[in-house]
Design a protein around this nucleic acid. Structure first.
Lengths: 191, 191
DNA sequence: GTCTATAGTGCGATAGAC
DNA sequence: GTCTATCGCACTATAGAC
């Protein structure tokens, strides 16, 4: 057989390992490709750029977020809808995944270019969530504010979830953070 | 005189022009440097990478945000503090600047790499705001949530401010968006 | 200020799956 | 035959090293 199946997955797995061991900048795309028996050119067939090898596959996460919005019963407020969406996305972060997520996040945090890519992905997620809310009839700027708030809560909850010694489930943490957000804005009177 | 002063500013101005006219990817760093009588090497002495030429100088914006937080009277809620901070940052966006901001934003929106850099800058701003809030005694996760909410409101307000036909001041728009955020979270009951 | 490694592109060739 | 994955090669621009 000329090529083993699952080239993309093998590249992703090996890349994370190499980045974690030697650093992102110190790892060349040719090296990643070679490590799984492929050439650099093939690497770039699968990933538009070097960073993307760490992010490819997040469409699934986006899908889960959107399903959460679409499944939410009518009559909920926009913030309640996105809270349901984050809860639905929690399925993506079972406890078995904590260790993998920690490794990946460590790599990302050590490189500004990777942080930029991550923020961009989160921004894109926020945008499609906003669209989905508008499709439900939520008007602007409420739709964008709710979507961005969801991403904020998600980010804070995720950071907590992978922090040293944390044992609660992602879903539990996210619910707590949502309550914090509501109480935060609820106490503001002079606006 | 061996070199004209203001090299950095001239590079920034000319770069924006070239990007707007010919596109970001189609403009090389050598071209930008040549356009103001400098060499590519000098370009990279002023800016750590090509994208940075559009973002250098935003420390001032950060400074204004932080001053707004520090100047806020004790006793305000965290969200009220960051609202004051955004109002103080509004000084950065007088009506005369709308046209420049529109051009710049058009360039950024046409290039994913530039969007990434912008999001990263906003993320950095959010982080220092969070720090400043914690220095005031705001605890986690409230500090991070308030800072992120401020960035969200800022972003929504900015987009509205540069939109076609908008005439209100940045400060007025931002105040409205803040009220929208509060009413959004205020109506959520099932959390 | 010069030199160089690496990222990333464009185009064409080849090999296998169907 | 078509379609898709892979490879080879030449090339430019960025960015960092010297």
């Amino acid at each position: 057989m000329r090529w083993e199946p699952g080239a993309r997955e093998r590249l992703q797995e090996s890349a994370l390992e190499l980045f974690a061991r030697n650093g992102f900048d110190q790892t060349t795309t040719a090296e990643i490709a070679r490590s799984v028996g492929l050439t650099e050119r093939t690497f770039f067939r699968h990933f538009s750029d070097k960073r993307e090898v760490l992010f490819y596959g997040q469409q699934e996460l986006v899908r889960v977020f959107l399903e959460g919005i679409e499944a939410a019963p009518a009559g909920l407020t926009p913030l309640e809808v996105v809270a349901a969406s984050v809860q639905s996305a929690a399925a993506f972060f079972p406890d078995e995944r904590r260790s993998f997520s920690r490794t990946r996040q460590t790599v990302i945090e050590q490189n500004p270019a990777l942080q930029e890519r991550e923020l961009h992905k989160m921004g894109a997620l926020s945008e499609v969530m906003g669209q989905s809310l508008r499709a439900r009839g939520v008007t602007e700027p409420a739709a964008t504010l709710a979507a961005e708030s969801a991403i904020t809560v998600f980010g804070v909850a995720f950071a907590q979830w992978i922090s040293e010694g944390e044992l609660r489930s992602f879903a539990d943490i996210a619910a707590d953070v949502f309550r914090e957000l509501v109480s935060l804005t609820g106490t503001a009177t002079s606006l």
